[in-house]
Amino acid sequence: MHIHLLYFAGLREVLGVATETLELPAEIETVAGLRELLAARGAPWTALVTTKNLRAAVNQEMAGQDARVHAGDEVAFFPPVTGG
């Protein structure tokens, strides 16, 4: 089963990718696990674990590192927001 990933702002620029669809390995159960899986691709993906205060959203709701991820989810990673 797949998950849909989105990257925004400075992170999107560093990665050079805005969206992707990924086969979710069965052992990946949390946002933190997903970050490590992506960082294991090597540079520039290490930004997923080295970026200060990186935020995540699961299905368009702000999510902590321990939040569960499931097949079919939409997971986004981005720097702290700066609107207004």
């Binding site: 925004f8 702002a9 400075g10 959203a57 702000m62 986004a76 981005f78 720097p79 702290p80 927001v81 700066t82 609107g83 207004g84």
Partner: peptide
């Protein structure tokens, strides 16, 4: 709350 919780980014 908009400034800290709504997903906007400025460059």
């Amino acid at each position: 709350f908009l400034k800290t919780r709504a997903p906007f980014w400025k460059k």
